[in-house]
């Protein structure tokens, strides 16, 4: 018999999943705005690609992947991937920007297109993974917690709402891009820990999670220094 506390934590995890996904997306959109300006277009494109890939993710799971009986394992892998790609996507995008500048001048019109391509690619991968998460959480909810799909969908929308508000009124104005992505990674880490403690309990995984936690803490504490390093060594670097 499941306790109310366990169900409440499950609800919280759904909220965290949705919140962290939209935070990853908004961080990318804001970074793209910082580099090439025109926030309306950057946010619109990022959200557009996010929506499309959300759909593709959900579709993929329903149509093509018949092996998703092990929902917990799949969710764990997805969260791991999101932790790495989502959390470090701002740094990765800036590295891509540096490489693009090395290849073609940033005054070329192809520069913006190439940069947008990578931003939309990252945004789509994050969206695709998020699209996989929701059906998996629905399955887990139905099997283990007797929670209906509507509740999961509803909480997903509420989590997105929370994420947008948090980003716009607290995280970004207070912490800037890199610290926000570090905080978001921390949220993903909490999801990973939940999966570990409630569903998937083994020693190598625990060691792996401890390593990730260390990375996350270092990232959060040194986000300011990382930002300075990126500005001076990547953004302002001569090509």
């Amino acid at each position: 018999m499941l306790s109310k506390r366990q169900i409440a934590i499950y609800y919280l995890i759904i909220l965290l999943v949705a919140t962290s996904c939209i935070l990853y997306e908004f961080t990318l959109a804001q970074l793209l705005t910082a580099i090439i300006g025109n926030s309306i277009v950057q946010y619109t494109l990022t959200i557009g690609f996010y929506l499309a890939s959300l759909g593709l993710g959900a579709l993929y799971l329903n149509f093509f992947d018949q092996k998703h009986q092990k929902e917990i394992e799949t969710l764990f892998k997805i969260e791991l991937f999101l932790f790495v790609l989502g959390g470090f996507s701002p740094v990765l995008l800036l590295l891509c920007e540096f490489l693009i500048r090395k290849t073609i001048s940033s005054t070329s019109e192809h520069y913006v297109q190439a940069l947008m391509f990578f931003a939309c690619l990252f945004s789509s991968i994050i969206g695709f993974l998020s699209g996989l998460e929701i059906p998996l959480l629905i399955k887990i909810g139905q099997k283990k917690y007797s929670v209906s799909a509507s509740i999961v969908m509803g909480l997903d929308y509420i989590g997105t709402f929370v994420g947008i508000m948090l980003f716009s009124f607290f995280l970004f104005p207070e912490y800037g891009i890199f610290k926000t992505s570090a905080v978001t990674s921390f949220a993903t880490l909490i999801i990973l820990l939940w999966i570990f403690f409630f569903h998937k309990n083994n020693k190598p995984t625990l060691l792996g999670l401890i390593a990730l936690a260390m990375i996350c803490i270092v990232y959060m504490f040194f986000a300011g220094n990382i930002e300075n390093l990126i500005i001076n060594k990547i953004y302002l670097a001569k090509t």
Partner: peptide, 18 residues
Amino acid sequence: LVVFCSYLGGFTGTLFFA
């Protein structure tokens, strides 16, 4: 497919706008 088309519609709308 309805869910997919709804997301695809959203994507097309934002792209059109941009």
